[in-house]
Each structure stands twice: as C-alpha cells, then as structure tokens.
C-alpha cells in the first residue's frame, strides 16, 4: 500500500527545494528523485503522455499514470485522501478541480523561477498552470465563406445563424466568464440572459468538445461558440476545413482562457520526483505541449493569444457557489430553446 512517507517528510523536501535555484536545484532534485525511483501522477490531460515519455527518457525514474476526466481525478484524490491512502505524488488537471483540492488543504506550494515565469492568471494558490484552455469561436470554412465569419459573440444571436451554431452542454466555466464580462460591460442581468437565450435559440447543443469538433469538421455545425483552440488547430492541421482565424481581421473576442495546472500532493511518497517533474513540464514540457497545439502557461514568441482580448473564469465565485452557475447554464441551455 503506497502510504510510505509521512506528510512531514514530504513537506521538508518541498521546503528545501523551493528555496533552491539553478543547477543546485536540479542536481539536488535528481539525486533525491533517483533514490525515490518512481513517481505516481493522476491527470486528466490527454496530451501529458508525450511529456511523460520525455521525462522518462531524461531521468531514470519510472512514472505511473492514472488518466481520467477531471471529475474522476478529483473524486479519486478526495476519496483516497479521506482514507489516508497516498496513491499519488502529483496531480495535473483543470483549474476548478485543483481549486477544490487546494481548498481542502491537500496540496503544497511549488516555488521557483519557472513558476515566476508563468502567466499571472496561472500562478494560483496551491497550484501552478502548465497550459491554458483557450475557448474560441470556430467555424467550418466551407459552410461559412470568407467575409461571412462572425465578428462577435453577440452576432450569433442574429436570426441568420439559426440552426447553424453549436454550444456545448458542459461549458459552465466559459459561460460564467462571458456572463461576468457582459455585466462588467454595463449590461443588466436581464440583458445578458436575453443575449444567451437568443444564441441558444439559434443553437444545436452538443455534448463533449471532441464530438462537437468532429461534427464541425463534418459540416453538421457551421459555427461553434466555445471550442478549444487546440481542437480546431489539430483538426485544421489534419486538413479539416475549420478555423478560428477569419480570412481577414482578428478572431472573435473576448477569448475566455482558463488555466490547467499541476500541483504537488502534501502527503506525496515521492516528493522530489514530483518536483522534478513539475520543473520538467514547465521547461522542456512546454515545447512538447506546444507540438500538440496546446497553449503553454509560459508565454513564448509565437503566443497564439498575443494582442487579443482575453478574460478569465471567475474562479473564486465558481468555487464558493458551484451550483449557482451550473443551474443558470442548465436553465438557459434548456429554456432558451423555447424563444422562437
């Protein structure tokens, strides 16, 4: 049963390394991590495999991975921690789930020069962003001709998009960010709801970004209101007729960005290996993620959202009152359909 190291010992290692920099940090980490020998990661990031391959090639450490959706990663960590079972050293998943774990005091801060280089939105309490989900308005380029591309989200409420737009049934975080954005722009609650209701009245609801992206490529939908940029970029790279960049001009803005990140478990049996992995993911790993069309957390020269208006998800509010946003989005997605 992986219950070896006591939490105190892990925290000693974390504190010691957090204070080190440069070669000294790497050397100490590698020495300690080699003694530990293995590393257990729980993740919902399907592109992490390639990062793990790179890590295992660089360091003589065996990595065990549990992959699930972000909900099951969270459920598993919570169940195990409540039973004092230390199944993992490291968790790599979405912001909402990481915030819950941080809130329940299961994570330990990671410090260093690499964290300091991460986009401000990604230096969260208890965890550090490794990549960003970028929600964009995408379209099928055979269904939407150059020049006809939507210019704004509001435009999708226009009757000319009737039956051509797709929303995703689980995108509560994107919805909350957009909703807050319009309130901040001076719209009233009623006006924001009306806007969403009218977009939903034009929309076909999909479940899952992958199915939605596939159906966009196939032409079942003309426009998706909240696709991940990497879903569209990957498909376009395969030759599919999809894009989120208009033939001329800039993409639809604002763009909601939400960090996904990594955190050290407070009770990790292999704390040094865990820290070594975070260091790796924030350096070499960033290049590997970039190859999978992911937007890394440390801005690079060819930053895909550079110069564009981005907004964040109201994390604190979503954490304090998760049911409120769920219920509101559920209601709008369902009742908006009745607006003719």
């Amino acid at each position: 049963m992986p219950t070896g190291t006591s939490s105190g010992k892990a925290q000693e290692v974390y504190d010691r390394i957090n204070g080190l920099t440069g070669d000294e940090r790497t050397k100490t980490l590698v020495d300690l991590a080699k003694q530990e020998g293995t590393l257990s990661i729980y993740t919902s990031n399907t592109d992490l495999d390639k990062v793990i391959d790179g890590f295992e090639k660089t360091y003589p450490i065996k990595v065990e991975v549990y992959r699930g959706n972000s909900e099951s990663v969270l459920q598993r960590v919570v169940q195990e921690q409540q039973a004092n079972y230390n199944g993992n050293d490291l968790v790599e998943t979405n912001a909402g789930e990481l915030n819950v774990m941080a809130d329940q005091n299961m994570l330990y801060p990671y410090e260093g020069a690499l964290r300091a280089a991460v986009r401000k939105e990604g230096q969260a309490d208890g965890w550090t962003a490794t990549r960003f989900n970028v929600f964009v308005v995408g379209w099928n380029t055979t269904k939407v001709k150059p020049g006809e591309e939507p210019k704004s989200f509001e435009e999708l409420a226009d009757p000319k998009w009737k039956g051509r737009v797709s929303l995703e049934v689980g995108d509560v975080d994107w919805f909350a960010a957009m909703y807050k954005y319009y309130l901040d722009q001076g719209k009233t609650d009623a006006e924001v709801r009306d806007l969403f209701n009218r977009v939903v009245a034009n929309a076909k609801i999909a479940k899952g970004h992958t199915a939605q992206g596939e159906l966009l490529s196939a032409g079942q939908f003309a426009v998706t209101a909240s696709s991940y940029s990497h879903t569209i970029d990957k498909a376009a790279d395969q030759g599919a007729p999809v894009s989120w960049h208009p033939a001329s001009g800039t993409p639809v803005q604002p763009i909601v960005i939400r960090p996904n990140g990594v955190a050290l478990m407070k009770t990790a049996p292999h704390p040094a290996a865990a820290m070594l992995f975070v260091d790796y993911e924030l350096s070499e790993g960033q290049k590997i993620l970039h190859e999978s069309f992911r937007v890394g957390s440390i801005p690079t020269a060819d930053d895909p959202v550079a110069g564009l208006t981005t907004i964040s998800v109201p994390e604190k509010e979503m954490l304090d009152n998760p049911k409120k946003w769920d219920a509101l989005y559920e209601e709008i997605v369902q009742s908006g359909r009745e607006v003719k």
Binding site: S40, S44, T46, D47, E64, V65, Y66, R67, G68, N69, G87, G208, H209, T210, A211, G213, E214, H230, T231, K234, A235
Partner: peptide, 18 residues
C-alpha cells in the same frame, strides 16, 4: 490503476483527445 488499464479507458482517452 496504472497497469490495470482496460480498453474502455483507451476509448475514452481517444474520445477526449479529439
């Protein structure tokens, strides 16, 4: 757990991964 993967998990991953 790691080492006990089943096919449905692979299906799910491919599905999530686009």
């Amino acid at each position: 757990s790691p080492g006990n993967e089943v096919l449905s998990i692979l299906i799910f991953e491919q599905y999530e991964n686009g």
